[in-house]
Write a protein that binds this DNA or RNA. Structure first.
Length: 412
DNA sequence: TCTGGGGTCCTAGGACCC
DNA sequence: TCTGGGGTCCTAGGACCC
């Protein structure tokens, strides 16, 4: 293994890279926070937290200065503030992240078309066909890091290995601002001592269950009888875990994956009373349905199943879904279905903390929509989309949302 | 400490069909 | 009259990831 670490200006040893690593994982460091610092350079070196500032917010990203105080992603903002009172909290700007992300992905595209973007700040590259032009994976990783830094002012870490899983592991170990190449014959030695939580798919629950079997490290998983493991974590998960523990991971880098569902959800700043705040609740659900469908239309997909999610004051969460006779991308239809599901959910008499809508079973078959009974709304939706395109989303909104006014808008 | 919002995948039971 | 097994679809919930 060879590590290039920005802070020490150590250059990775090209002789170490034996060419067996052909998959790269690129992961931006503290992405949202770093993008914000580009616009606020005076904050560089200070603890910075990116979070929407609400009573129930969580930390989206924190700079390493803030992380040193124990702040991390998904932590309640209130707690983060206690841990690091001096931290500057910045409101997220998703358009900026999207823009930076596209710039980074374009840089990656110079090396291979085989790019699988996992999220705004993360991607896998299969460079097996690019080494003749650009050298081994380690060399490509180093170039990517340099070009990203020069052209965006942002820092990323890169892992290279023979499989996706190990490449991702390597980028994580290289952080911050590093590069790590793991050759094939180094894989087992790297994996064996790691805690089982390092395996993708092993979260808190699974870790607990495996610990109940006395399994602590990846080596433990590798050397345990498969049935023992599948018995506690299920068939599919168990088999995958064992494979990963052996360093086996046949998942290919797949450039475009089709989306399976689209949805929106909202947590209210304070719980809504099902009776007194019924209008607000309806307005919120309609807004979520409209936004979900606007996105579906933009993506050219329809959903056959409408699903809702309701979370009560006690954080108890329930989902309900209904499959329609014909797929839809019409806000009105999704809203009516969703509202009915809510009323029948058994949650309709309790204070609501969160409500959400999701379109599932997506199909690109627009012809299917001709059979649906919401034809008359389709023209309206198209008109709304056209105005939104010219004047920005929110220029046209259903009357119900205006009436309830800024209660609904303010909940965002 | 008090828990966001966007998703994916898996499991399990029941309905229904052959 | 009671009882198969397999396959597919639908629904609910849970775990997990970024």
């Amino acid at each position: 293994m060879s590590r290039q670490d920005g802070s020490h200006r150590r250059v990775s040893d090209p002789a170490h890279d034996d060419g067996t690593a052909t998959i790269l994982h690129i992961d931006m460091d503290a992405f949202f926070a770093s993008v914000e610092l580009l616009a606020r350079p005076e904050l560089v070196g200070r603890p910075v937290i990116v979070a929407h500032d609400g009573p129930r917010s969580i930390v989206t990203t924190a700079t390493y200065e803030a992380r040193r105080h124990g702040v991390h992603s998904a932590m309640p903002l209130a707690q983060a503030r206690r841990l690091c009172p001096r931290a500057v909290v910045i409101e997220p700007h998703h358009e900026r992240y999207g823009h930076a992300s596209r710039t980074v992905m374009a840089i990656l595209g110079r090396f291979t078309p085989l790019i699988e973007q996992v999220s705004v700040d993360e991607a896998f590259l299969d460079v097996s066909g690019a080494t003749r032009l650009f050298g081994a994976a380690g060399a490509i990783g180093a170039r990517i890091r340099a070009e990203v830094r020069v052209e965006t002012g942002l820092v990323c870490s890169v892992g290279a290995a023979t499989t996706k899983f190990v490449a991702k592991l390597a980028s994580g170990m290289a952080k911050p601002d590093g590069l790590l190449v793991v050759n094939r014959d180094e894989t087992r030695a790297l994996l064996d001592p790691l805690p089982i939580g390092a395996l993708p798919g092993v979260g808190a629950r699974t870790q607990e269950r495996l610990r109940g079997l006395g399994l602590v490290t990846v080596a433990d998983v590798r050397t345990t009888a498969p049935q023992t493991i599948t018995r506690v974590v299920g068939d599919a998960a168990g088999r995958r875990l064992i494979d990963l523990a052996h360093g086996r991971d046949r998942r290919a880098v797949t450039p475009r994956r089709e989306e399976k569902s689209i949805g929106h959800e909202r947590t209210f700043p304070a719980d809504l009373d099902p009776v007194a705040d019924a209008d607000q609740l309806r307005a919120a659900l309609l807004d979520l349905a409209e936004r979900t469908c606007a996105r579906a239309r933009r993506h050219g997909v329809l959903g056959r199943t409408v699903a809702i999610k309701v979370r009560d004051a006690a954080f108890h969460t329930v989902t309900r879904s209904q499959t329609l006779v014909a797929p839809t991308q019409t806000g009105r239809t999704v809203f009516t279905t969703a509202w009915r599901l809510y009323e029948q959910s058994g949650m309709a008499d309790r204070p609501v903390r969160l409500i959400g809508v999701r379109l599932e079973q997506l199909t690109g078959d627009v012809a299917g929509a001709l059979w649906s009974d919401d034809v008359e709304w389709q023209a309206t939706d198209r008109a709304v989309d056209a105005v939104a395109e010219r004047f920005g989303a929110g220029a046209v909104r259903p009357a119900r949302l205006l009436r309830g006014g800024d209660a609904a808008a303010g909940a965002r």
